[in-house]
């Protein structure tokens, strides 16, 4: 619970900072309409003028986007989004956070429900047909979590013989990926709406493994090291990107610039260390932004 409190304090502190900035003491970091100049007609200009932004993130992903008891989302995705918002000259408290579970992420971008999505959002070609990605800002990989004393599962191939049961989340990339290895979906695969249900099922013995991106699993292992461990190496690469509208190349470039700036000035590393970095995942070097 301490973590939550610290995070809340941190949030309050940044908020206070933002407010003083509004007061105009600090010309460089100013927020408010017209505080930064952007090309006329661009998304950045529109958002800056409106002084409001809607961001889709997850509300149930520890370390990345999780709504805490304060009712505010916390995590790495949230921090990265805040870095972008700051660069847009919008104060943090003007962000409207909208829950974007795995299965609706493309929809909310296409429909314009949100301005951008930062929600452990794997960049892949199928999604690029409907939306565009800035980033990546982190590279995860799919892995498998098993009980500490389980040696029978060593990787995705362990599911091929049709006896081991595995849990994942509806509509997520890992769920689709693991289907390639599972022999019989009906008797081996369970899908829930959140990963903590999967974790509980693993703990209770209803399933033998949980599969998703390693960082998410590491979060659960960090909380309960006595019960869980990872089985083997990552078997996919999951670069997380920021989802924006497909045709909005300017905004995408702007976000990419912002990310590179954040890599350079240490704010990206700080965001990581404050959130998901606590789970012990290696940060590695910053992924190269892919300006396709």
């Amino acid at each position: 619970m301490r973590i939550t409190r610290v995070a809340a304090l941190a949030a309050a502190a940044t908020l206070a900072l933002g407010m003083t900035a509004c007061g105009g003491d600090d010309a460089d970091e100013g927020t408010g309409a017209g505080s930064k100049s952007f090309a006329a007609g661009s998304t950045m200009e529109r958002l800056n003028k409106a002084q409001a932004i809607k961001i889709g993130t997850k509300f149930d992903q520890p370390g990345f986007g999780q709504k805490g008891l304060s009712g505010k989302p916390e995590g790495f995705d949230v921090e990265v989004a805040k870095i972008i918002v700051k660069e847009l000259g919008i104060p943090e408290d003007k962000i409207e956070w909208i829950e974007a579970p795995s299965k609706v992420r493309e929809d909310v971008i296409v429909n314009g429900t949100v301005d951008l999505v930062a929600a452990t959002y794997t960049i892949n070609d199928k999604r690029k047909e409907r939306i565009a990605f800035a980033g990546p800002y982190y590279e995860a990989g799919q892995n498998i979590m098993v009980k500490k004393d389980d040696t029978s599962i060593t990787g995705p191939d362990s599911f091929k013989d049709g006896t081991k049961k595995v849990c994942s989340v509806t509509g997520s990339t890992p769920a689709e990926e693991i289907k390639k290895y599972v022999k019989d979906v009906a008797t081996q695969l369970v899908l829930f709406d959140t990963y903590d249900k999967c974790r509980d099922a693993l703990k209770g013995g209803q399933v033998d493994a949980v599969t998703t991106d390693n960082v998410i699993l590491l979060g659960y292992i960090a909380k309960d090291e006595a019960s869980f461990k990872l089985a083997g190496e990552n078997f996919t690469k999951e670069p997380y990107g920021i989802g924006v509208k497909k045709e909005d190349t300017d905004f995408r470039t702007f976000i990419n610039d912002t990310l590179e700036k954040a890599y350079a000035d240490g704010s990206w590393k700080k965001a990581w260390d404050d959130t998901a970095g606590k789970f012990g995942a290696e940060l590695g070097s910053a992924p190269t932004v892919n300006r396709y």
């Binding site: 299965k103 849990c167 509509g171 769920a175 979906v185 009906a186 695969l189 899908l191 829930f192 709406d193």
Partner: peptide
């Protein structure tokens, strides 16, 4: 379908529209 039963009608709707597009 929302409580771990994979492949009933409602979960099929979810699967086809969201995961398989």
């Amino acid at each position: 379908g929302f409580f771990g039963v994979v492949g009933d009608l409602s979960q099929t709707a979810d699967q086809l529209t969201s995961a398989e597009g």
